[in-house]
Design a protein around this nucleic acid. Structure first.
Lengths: 165, 165
DNA sequence: CTTGACAGGTTCCGTTTCGGAACCCATTGT
DNA sequence: ACAATGGGTTCCGAAACGGAACCTGTCAAG
């Protein structure tokens, strides 16, 4: 599997990673969710090399995750904003955030907390089944080939004592 | 922000990315969730360069995401299994999977589907508030510095017309 | 009307990381 | 004695990254 062909893999994870699966992209998107929009501000807050930032913003824009919105003419200046496709990455951010809070925080606790506007509580996300509403975890799901599977195969099920079963 | 110091950033997303934020790690973990455990099998299924695979497996093992379990002696052979910390990454996989299903699938639909054992339905994950149970999205949350924030700052809130508000 | 600042890039160069192939090593099968 | 197996390590050229310098419109100041 080559990196440049990831987006054509018959796997939604691979396809997602063809967009967000590199060192910087999710950090750029973190800033977007924190309402950062301008080149300079991304650069200053992230300490990213300018041409890498330019490349990521271009790729995210080409992918439809960000969109350039002019905020002045003469000289023309544009800022980057999340599209609906980009906003939809929020669950990805949240999952990584919650995992980091749980497994990568020191004794002091997490560095940033999130509060739910609706209930006012400090919260984390619970993944629930879209059909029955029960919480989901790795052991409660099975996978099957779907309609878009062309020649893909799942590994054989012969293994036993699975930790991921 | 340097890549080697990501794990010391006061940000759970950065800390998570210090472990899973590269080209291959989440694909290796995808295989783990599909019950792949052996070096050769990872290599064949992923088409990853052997030394890159060896490096990722070592880093994941050092990070406590995978653990090496001997399955024979003489010659000693070990396989890689997800730890609890690794299994806890399932929501991350699921979020990326669902996003890819929604935004990266062609007209045929997603290549792989997931079925919830408990209810038997094909499902996707819904992120809900751990406190009130309502669905969460980017616009329903506010962020605040938490107990582990040392000197970190959130961007100023002066921006208006926010698309991520 | 020349100089400087500002926002947003692009170019260049030296260091890392990656992809691919070859090689290593202990043990068992033929 | 020799090949196969599983799990790596080594080596090389290509791609990506980090850092600094440079470029491009436009306006404002001297």
């Amino acid at each position: 599997m080559r990196w440049e062909e990831l987006d054509r893999e018959p796997c939604s994870l691979a396809r997602s990673l063809s967009i967000v699966g590199d060192r910087w992209t999710l950090l750029v998107l973190r800033e977007c969710f924190l309402r950062v929009r301008r080149f300079e501000e991304f650069e200053q807050r992230l300490g990213i090399a300018r041409h890498v930032l330019a490349d990521r913003l271009k790729k995210l824009t080409d992918a439809g995750v960000l969109t350039k919105v002019p905020y002045q003419e003469r000289p023309r200046r544009e800022e980057y904003r999340l599209t609906e496709k980009g906003l939809d990455l929020y669950p990805v951010m949240l999952s990584l955030l919650d995992w980091g809070d749980k497994w990568m925080s020191g004794a002091e606790g997490p560095p940033v907390i999130r509060r739910h506007k609706a209930c006012g509580q400090v919260v984390h996300a619970v993944h629930t089944c879209s059909e029955c509403g029960e919480p989901l975890d790795a052991r409660s799901m099975t996978v099957e080939l779907g309609p878009g599977a062309k020649g893909a195969e799942l590994p054989s099920e012969t293994a036993e004592g699975s930790s991921a079963k």
